[in-house]
Design a protein around this nucleic acid. Sequence first.
RNA 1: CGGGGAGUGGCGCAGUGGUAGCGCACCUGCUUUGGGGGCAGGCGGUCGGGGGUUCAAAUCCCCCCUCCCCGACCA
Length: 468
Amino acid sequence: MAKARVLTPKSESFPDWYQDVIAKAELAENGPARGTMVIRPYGWAIWERMQAEVDRRIKDAGAQNAYFPLFIPESYLHKEAEHVEGFSPELAVVTHGGGKELEEPLVVRPTSETVINAYFSKWLQSYRDLPLLINQWANVVRWELRPRLFLRTTEFLWQEGHTCHASEADARDYALRILSEVYEQFMVDVLAIPVLTGAKTENERFAGADQTWTCEAMMGDGKALQMGTSHLLGQNFAKVFDTQFLTEAGEREYAWQTSWGVSTRMVGGLIMVHGDDAGLRLPPALAPVQVVVVVVRDEGGAGEKAEALAKQLKAAEIRTELDARDTPFGRRAVEWELKGVPVRIELGPRDIASGNAIVVRRDRAEKETTPLDGLPVRLPEVLDEIQQSLMQQAKDRQEHRTADVATVGEAVGAARTGFARMPWDGAGELEDKLNQEGVSVRCLRRTDGSVPLSSDEDDLVAVVARAY
RNA sequence: CGGGGAGUGGCGCAGUGGUAGCGCACCUGCUUUGGGGGCAGGCGGUCGGGGGUUCAAAUCCCCCCUCCCCGACCA
């Protein structure tokens, strides 16, 4: 039986392929209102795993979770000039409540710097209260003209961290710590996505920040996706919300602040980095289901053996699912491939007779025969190999599709298939020209690849690309 | 918001003025199960919405809405 075409091939149309994966893997679909998204159980399981891993790292970095309101008085947004200017075009504003027009409109939070500062200003009294490290998991709304599931939806889910520090240096250190120890480490170790960390240009900076840093990743089509950002807010919000503390010397000083976030956009990135023409491919460290045990045909004790094996693997803390459904084998195989489950174990009467199982790796089209007894030992190794192989494949692509260039013309050419690295002029003329060609500066890095403390440093390298 | 494409059953589509169809999916039964199996029988649609032309509109005209692609804005 010939393989039926399951998805639009990536090479034919990457956007169609992306949508097909989301539909066929049952990750999400559009909500009834434009730009909204229904996240289906399997998509949610992936997001839950991301949340758990990011949350743990945030707590390791010392922050505590809290929750602030969805509705923010409109006047709060207006207190910080650049902030409101940046967000005005994408605000959803509530003007009526309880059947009456409100005295003051409420904005649905696009981010929570303002409302959180209103409370930080009450909570923060003394240098002894610092650092004040708060995170919240929430939904936010930014009106989008061109929504795309996971990548750009009007409502999306994220975590937003908000912190206060005694000095600019402390705040900067913390923003950079989150960038590397939480975001970069999570993306590399769990998502198996190589990311480029660096500073944003002034042009690309968060509205109201002194400095923005970013994690950028290359998607399967060579375009860039911003996977996470961390900001040094300086004293901009502290000044307008009067967030002050008494120093050891007894003087009043405005707090130095940061904010940082990652969102459901990461799910889109995960799809576009690892997915192939058979569907999603999930790194084992993230996968909600790491191993599926498929009963090919319940004869010769295959069903019983599969159930026992699944139980054994679960006991060994491998996230395992048993598939003993009475539907044709081929259909089920395709389904698990679409969903990107890293390892599929096939058990039928033949295997029971021979004492082996067929182990199928999702990272490459290969089946291997493994003794049944050896599986509990072998599987953790296989999962680890898959994790590494997905990372290696993503890394190879990123390297092969990144070119060092000298001119805008060359950069635009390189950006058709990937990234370009070029010397940064520091003035922004380069950026204007690139932007006119549909290419943007994704981040600025030092020549040795490390993250600059500021976009104003000398001798920086600009990484430029087309972006989502 | 500018340019281009498209809205017909859950999904994909055909249907240029005359009884709304096909494939897949779904349901029932039998048979199957080692890569989306086979046979038989079924359920399911105010043709995106509103208005107009006509004896008659999925089809022609007007307005609106939505989705997709490419641009400008963004996590």
